[in-house]
Simulated assay, not measured.
Amino acid sequence: MEKYSRLRDLVGELPNLFLIEAPAASDTQLLYAHDPSYLLRVVNGSLSEAEQKEIGFPWSEKMVERSRRSAGATIAAAKTAMQEGISGNLAGGTHHAYRNRGSGFCVFNDAAVAARTLQKEINSKLKIAIIDLDVHQGNGTASILQHDSSIFTLSMHGENNFPFQKEVSDLDYGLQDGCDDQTYLQTLNECLDQLDSRFKPDFVIYLAGADPHEDDRLGRLKITKEGMRLRDETVFQYGLDQNIPIAFSMAGGYGKEIASTVEIHFQTIQTALQFQMRY
Rank of each mutant, 00 (worst) to 15 (best):
P245I: 01
T271F: 08
P245T: 02
A259Y: 14
H265L: 04
L230N: 07
K256M: 10
F266I: 07
R217G: 02
A272M: 08
G219I: 13
E233I: 12
M277W: 11
I264M: 06
G219H: 04
L221P: 00
Y254R: 00
V262R: 05
G239F: 02
M277Y: 12
D241F: 04
I244H: 04
G219V: 09
F236K: 00
T271K: 05
H213L: 11
D232K: 01
L273Q: 14
G253E: 05
E263G: 04
P245M: 02
V235N: 00
Q267R: 07
A210F: 01
D216C: 07
Y238P: 02
Q274C: 11
G253P: 02
M228P: 04
L240R: 11
E233H: 06
G239Q: 06
F266P: 07
F248D: 00
I258H: 08
G255Y: 03
H213Y: 15
T271Q: 09
G219M: 10
N243T: 13
R231K: 10
G227W: 05
G227N: 07
K225D: 13
I258Q: 07
V235K: 00
Q267W: 03
P245G: 03
R220F: 15
V262K: 04
Q276W: 12
Q270E: 14
D211R: 05
G219P: 00
F236P: 02
A251I: 09
A210W: 01
G227S: 07
R229C: 06
S260K: 10
G239S: 09
D215M: 14
S260A: 09
F236D: 02
P212K: 04
Q237A: 14
Q276E: 12
H265C: 05
R217H: 08
Q242E: 12
E214I: 13
G227T: 06
M277H: 15
I223E: 01
E233L: 11
D232H: 02
T261L: 11
E263V: 09
S249P: 02
D216A: 10
R217E: 10
